[in-house]
Amino acid sequence: MLLITQTALELGFLYALVAMALFLSYRILDIADLTTDGCFVLGAAVSVTLAGAGYPILAIPAAMGAGACAGFVTAFLQTRLGVPSILAGIVTNTGLYTVNLMAMGWRSNASLLRVDTIFTLLRDTGVGGGYSDLLLAAVVTLAAGGLLVLFLGTRLGLSIRATGDNRDMVRASSVNPTFTVTVGLCISNALTALAGAMVGQYQKTVDINSGTGIVVIGLACLIIGETVLGRRTVVKGVVAAVLGSILYRFLYAVVFYTKVVPVDCLKLLTAAIVGLAIAAPSIRRWAAFQKRKLAAGRKGGT
């Protein structure tokens, strides 16, 4: 039981980076960035390949750099070349499939056997004892979250936040929205790749399909967190991403061990939750309208 809790926490912290990335792209920039799936695998592929070559620490910033490049491509397509933003993400995502195969040496999966990862390096120092994996996952994610909050309070961060809110106003404050969208997507994809890089070394393996549905799972985490915490401020949003991700992994663990629903159904369930949560305002409006129509009909005495 303790082990399950620990694993859920570890995965919760690691995948929270994806939810954080989506908080930045989806909530703040108001862009549904479908680069996420491929970008997650890109981070994992770069990380596992470099760790396999003996550079587990260098692998992390390298993966983030690769993710930022993927974000740049998506941003370039939508800001400069006029590709609709959702399509821009899909185009990049499709291209990334080949890039990811390339990063893994033209194989569809790669594993780390008897080589150091950042997790084994920390374990060997003895810091954190049996909880060293959890410690590393928590420290990396909380540090990334803290830096993100600090960054969003700077002038550049403020102009990125205003871009999703009111682009006219960004232009009026002498900032080019093209620039803020690009910076925002580079950062969010660097975060997604960081998640992939950490998960890749944590699980010591990467598969070309391991990113499928990550964007929806990340959104589910964010929505779960926001339901618990509410969404007003940047700090709350980042905390919601972490909390939601941990809750999601606990939910996953419960399903996995109790088998209340088959684990294979979890993606369908997640997709349904996300679909419903995003549709909630429309459903509420529809319900209110039906209620009014019903009330009006009664009064008419037909």
Partner: peptide, 21 residues
């Protein structure tokens, strides 16, 4: 009047953006 300000940001954050000029 909605076109000149970012609604989800605070008054001081809006002013800080204007100050970027």
């Amino acid at each position: 009047p909605l076109r000149g300000t970012a609604p989800s940001m605070t008054i001081e954050e809006n002013l800080a953006l204007a100050y970027l000029r």
